[in-house]
């Protein structure tokens, strides 16, 4: 199974065996599980044609669902950006009892199945729920079955991403850097703005991108709490499922392609910002 070294100009010579075998396993599984299915989607989309795809995507109900999905995902990811940074900072820098336990609890949204999270959040934040009732009485705000409910579900699923990407970077910051900044006369706020945040920016952006990507496609935790009213609280992944249940495969494919394209553009943008900010901080 091993490839003769030097026989392949694609690869630098190496004494280690198993390149062919490991790459073979990798590409076989990758193709079977990921690439062929995505290819099937793209081929189907190409068969439908751009005009037909656009007609489906620009229909009011689909457009409303797409706008809702991306708006809610952006809101949740932005919230997680701030909340995640604060939580990571508290977990690394501050001493308080039960810190390790709370650190472990951050991973809960990741380990908990989305359907479980969905029904638990719904039971809690529904108008007759333990938290939803008081919130409605005191603030006059309905949480479940509104967009606010979708935000809560998406904040829940995206929470670990920012915390876990920023936490190790905070732990690696040397306190001397902050001391130098303080000795040079910077206030704590200035130190944060000019020293700490620039160091954390790449990690923050990575965490934001991961949380955003996760939130855009999230289905399980949202459909229970959303209420799923067309034009109001119907997210794009749910509309795909509805189209599939109607055997409208072309309609489902169109929405899926739109979601993939928008996600791709968003992640590309975040990547560009990241490259820009790296260059910016390196030059400063």
């Amino acid at each position: 199974m091993t490839t003769r070294p030097g026989a392949w100009s694609l690869r630098a010579p190496s004494p280690l065996p198993g390149w062919g075998l490991s790459l073979g396993i990798t590409l076989t599984l990758l193709s079977l599980v990921v690439l062929l299915p995505i290819g099937a989607l793209l081929i189907r989309a190409a068969g439908i044609g751009p005009a037909e795809l656009w007609a489906t995507i620009s229909s009011p109900r689909v457009l409303a669902a797409l706008v809702l999905s991306f708006r809610a995902a952006l809101v949740a990811a932005l919230f997680n950006l701030v909340f995640g940074l604060a939580l990571a900072w508290v977990l690394v820098r501050y001493e308080f009892p039960g810190r390790r336990l709370i650190d472990a609890a951050v991973d809960l949204p990741f380990a908990l199945p989305t359907a479980v999270a969905g029904i638990a959040l719904t039971a809690l934040y529904a108008p007759n729920g333990a938290l939803g009732g008081p919130i409605q009485d005191w603030f006059g705000v309905r949480v479940a079955y509104t967009e606010l409910g979708i935000w809560i579900a998406l904040v829940f699923v995206g929470l670990p991403f920012v915390v876990r990407t920023v936490q190790p970077v905070i732990a690696e910051i040397e306190k001397e850097v902050e001391e130098v900044s303080a000795t040079l006369g910077a206030s704590r706020l200035t130190t944060w703005r000019r020293v700490i945040l620039p160091m954390l920016t790449p990690a923050l952006l990575t965490g934001f991108a991961l949380a955003l990507a996760r939130a855009v496609g999230e289905y399980g935790s949202v459909i229970f709490i959303a209420g799923n009213l067309p034009f109001q609280t119907e997210i794009a992944p749910l509309l795909i499922v509805i189209r599939l249940e109607e055997f409208d495969y072309d309609g489902a494919v169109a929405i899926a392609v739109a979601m993939l394209a928008i996600s791709f553009v968003l992640l590309l943008l975040i990547n560009l910002i990241q490259v820009w900010s790296r260059r910016h901080t390196a030059g400063a």
Partner: peptide, 18 residues
């Protein structure tokens, strides 16, 4: 890393199409 940016529902749809 591709599966990270694909919605689970879209992943399911892809498998149904194939």
């Amino acid at each position: 890393d591709l599966p990270f940016s694909v919605s689970p529902v879209v992943a399911g749809l892809c498998i149904v199409l194939l």
